[in-house]
Amino acid sequence: MTVASNVKQCLVTIKGIESQLSSLAFNSLDQEAKAAFHDTALTIGTIKKDLQYRILELERQEPQYKGS
């Protein structure tokens, strides 16, 4: 396992969390819960962007692991 693949795995989990939060925001009936799920989905979105950027950096530094 390389660093890049670890970070990629983390990114995939983050993406899963984001989509689950969005679906919970849609399915919940309570307004407060809806808002909380929606807000946190947006926060997770920013973390996702940072990680994606980091993966690009890692791939540029270690091109031999690209795509793995």
Binding site: T13, I17, Q20, L21, L24
Partner: peptide, 13 residues
């Protein structure tokens, strides 16, 4: 499960 994976990701970071 979602809570667990949130915690796992936090630890990863």
């Amino acid at each position: 499960l979602l809570l667990a994976s949130l915690k796992k990701t936090q630890a990863d970071l």
